[in-house]
Nucleic acid binder design. Structure first.
Length: 711
DNA sequence: CTAGGGTTAG
């Protein structure tokens, strides 16, 4: 869902007098060049290399853009409000102006060397004994009386380093302070903080830091990076920033470790501008970023789905002379997936293998997930084969990802084999994720019997089904029109305390449309009433023909605003279906209009000079038919006004991989016949209907002749 | 082993 692309960045960059530097040809980069080679040797469509014209070609002439001035068309997004134009502007910004003041120290903080004394074994045995006892003050402090002396600095460090859990480390630090035997050093605090970080005790870490400040023990880079990383672990990003700023204020220069830690904080906050700015200021100070930095940047751009950002990372690695390591590859693979570039991901993966790096579970999870989402079953199966042949590492996340991939590409038997393997394995027993994946597979195949059998098996085995699993099951039963079973499953989820989320509500909403006209309509509606009364109220509102468009619009906005972004389009699709089922065609068109207005159908209309395409692949049947009608009206008007038309018209429905997804093509096709419009199944493209300009013009003319004769 | 930063699931 598009938050309006703001001009924040333009302002920002104008402000700092940045100059625009065009991105170098991605083919010049080693990694990307190889990607192209791999792309072209596969069954799947490679991404087109980015061209400067790709954006202008896609010049939007959608209904929403045409109507934009009529209304405020902004829905809030749940995601952060950080909009930036770095990616959308198809450009990379650098600051070539002269070096600014130094922002990070060129040398990493040196560690003091220390070595443990010869009584190390005794002492270790003693600490292990301490680790066995309870962590309360009453249990722990008395046992400290038996501590082997002398309490040298080295011995104290050994104890602090070895004590577990954090409560004991913390108590021990306090205890040394009261013993007053040694001057308190920074390193004592740092080691203690590390232990506290393990226990996610940020408040205590902060307390220790203040104690250091109060008692004049200096905080160093290790202290700060530990504080920052603990804040991060506790999702206290503002705290991390606060301590980082304090560091500068006290005149301590961060070294590369602290610097990359704070880059990651800004990255997780989605503050891409700040990260780029900090990164470039660091570079201008002469810093040579390392793989960890590139991993941070890569993850950030991946989260933003920003392919240009990812290319920027490649460029920077090349210009700095850093070779990606396993983690960097993993991060960039994941990022490529999130940026919707499966072909580049595949190329990158092959490059990684060629370079001699052995993939780990995370690598394979990322790549399998990408192939699944891209519906590249051949690549996915080949990779799976290679995983087995090479004995590459597997874990249960990878197993579950493989199952999800099978769901994505419709591999039922393969999934069943995997699922059996998991049951027989020692360490990868199926969990609720695995069951959910299987329910998803059976659901999308419409195999109610197997889905219900699995549900019963789960109940017996004690694996807790979560809201996602229930959603899959309900979807499966709904599509099979088994409403009684569905209602039972829904209430059993309520009994188990499952809180219906927006996806479950969307699923119920679609079942409402399926149940319309059957005897179970009311029962299904009652489930939705339980899960989301506002949706039911809205349905009643739109079903009342007296309700004004303005009212519908206001309520529609309210419903969509309170729903998470991913379900807004499905909600709108279902609502249109519901209207069409009740023969409320006008209302259906109003809803499609509103959905378009609020950006729920951003790629419905694609126009080039040569062809106009109506892409209904993400629409429900009812919404697709409504969009087709709308399109034909518009085209009729354009023909009558004798405005410029392209050579070719396309309507794209796709042909779904799943049993239930195939209905769109069929319904669309029959609606084309019903409207008697001149679209024919395209011979070149499956899931596509096409018409020429001549077809269309003569259709409009014969229609108007017919209309004239009729009157 | 002996103080600090980065990567896996709807």
């Amino acid at each position: 869902m598009a938050a309006p692309l703001s001009t924040v960045v333009d302002v920002y960059f104008t402000d700092t007098k940045r100059t625009r530097l065009s991105v170098t040809n991605p083919c010049r980069q080693k990694g990307i060049r190889k990607c192209f080679i791999h792309c072209s040797t596969s069954n799947s469509t490679p991404e087109a290399p980015p061209t400067p014209t790709s954006d202008s070609k896609k010049k939007s002439t959608s209904l929403s853009d045409q109507l934009a001035p009529l209304a405020n068309k902004t829905l809030s997004t749940v995601a952060g409000d950080q909009s930036y134009a770095f990616s959308k502007g198809k450009s990379t910004w650098v600051n070539p102006t002269k070096a600014k003041r130094t922002v990070l120290s060129s040398e990493r903080q040196k560690r003091a060397t220390y070595s443990y004394s010869p009584q190390l074994k005794d002492l270790k045995r003693f600490v292990h004994k301490l680790n066995q006892c309870g962590s309360s003050e009453d249990e722990f402090l008395p046992s400290l009386e038996e501590i082997p002396r002398p309490l040298t600095r080295e011995n104290v460090l050994l104890i602090l380093n070895t004590l577990k859990p954090w409560q004991k480390t913390h108590l021990f630090l306090d205890w040394i302070k009261t013993q007053n035997l040694l001057p308190m050093e920074t390193i004592f605090y740092n080691v203690t903080m590390k232990s506290l970080r393990f226990g996610k005790q940020f408040a205590l870490i902060e307390e220790l830091a203040h104690q250091m400040i109060d008692t004049g023990v200096p905080l160093d880079n290790i202290t700060y990076s530990t504080i920052i990383s603990c804040a991060k672990k506790c999702n206290l990003y503002d705290k991390a920033v606060q301590w980082f700023e304090r560091m500068y204020k006290t005149g301590l220069m961060p070294d590369e470790v602290t610097y990359s830690a704070i880059l990651d904080v800004y990255a997780r906050l989605g503050k891409v501008e700040e990260v780029i700015s900090l990164y470039e200021r660091g570079r201008a100070s002469g810093w040579k970023p390392d793989p960890i930095t590139f991993s941070v940047l890569g993850k950030m751009f991946g989260e933003a789905g920003d392919y240009d950002g990812i290319r920027y990372v490649f460029q920077e690695m090349e210009s700095v002379g850093v070779q990606p390591n396993l983690v960097v590859y993993n991060t960039l693979l994941e990022a490529m997936g999130k940026a919707g570039k499966p072909g580049f991901a595949r190329g990158l993966f092959e490059e990684m293998i060629e370079s001699g790096i052995v993939p780990n579970e995370k690598t394979l999870t990322a790549v399998i997930k990408i192939y699944g989402k891209a519906r590249w079953s051949r690549d996915a199966l080949e990779l799976w084969q290679r995983m087995k042949e090479n004995d590459w590492p597997m874990d249960f996340i990878l197993y579950n990802t493989l199952l999800n991939m099978c769901a994505d590409v419709g591999l039922v038997e393969e999934a069943e084999t995997l699922f059996r393997d998991m049951k027989q394995s020692a360490h990868c027993k199926p969990d609720s994720w695995s069951y959910t994946a299987m329910l998803n597979i059976y659901g999308s195949q419409g195999d109610v019997d197997k889905a219900m059998k699995l549900f019963e098996e789960m109940c017996k085995s004690g694996v807790e089904l979560n809201v996602m699993g229930f959603t899959c099951l309900i979807q499966c039963l709904g599509r099979a029109m088994e409403f009684d079973g569905l209602v039972r499953v829904f209430y059993s989820s309520v009994e188990r305390g499952i809180k219906p989320d927006d996806r479950l509500c969307g699923c119920l909403l679609s079942v409402v449309s399926l149940s319309q006209g059957s005897k179970d309509e009311e029962k299904v509606l009652a489930c939705l009433q339980e899960a989301n009364p506002k949706l039911v109220a809205f349905i009643q509102l739109i079903e009342d023909e007296k309700t004004s468009f303005e009212t519908v619009k206001e309520e529609f906005k309210g419903i969509m605003n309170s729903a998470v972004v991913e379900v807004r389009r499905p909600f709108c699709n279902c609502l249109i279906d519901i209207c069409r089922n009740k023969d409320l065609l006008e209302r259906a068109h109003e809803l499609l209009y509103l959905g378009t207005l609020y950006g729920l159908y951003p790629s419905l209309h694609n126009k080039t000079d040569e062809e106009w395409c109506l892409d209904v692949r993400s629409l429900s049947v009812g919404a697709a038919l409504t969009a087709l009608e709308e399109w034909m009206w518009t085209l009729t008007k354009i023909v009558k006004r004798e405005e410029t038309l392209p050579e070719l018209f396309l309507a794209q429905t796709g042909t779904g991989a799943h049993k239930f997804a195939q209905g769109l093509h069929v319904s669309f096709s029959s609606h084309l016949r019903k409207l008697a419009v001149p679209f024919r199944q395209s011979e070149e493209k499956v899931g596509c209907f096409s018409a020429t300009r001549e077809d269309l013009i003569s259709w409009v003319q014969s229609n108007s002749t017919a209309a004239a004769t009729a009157t």
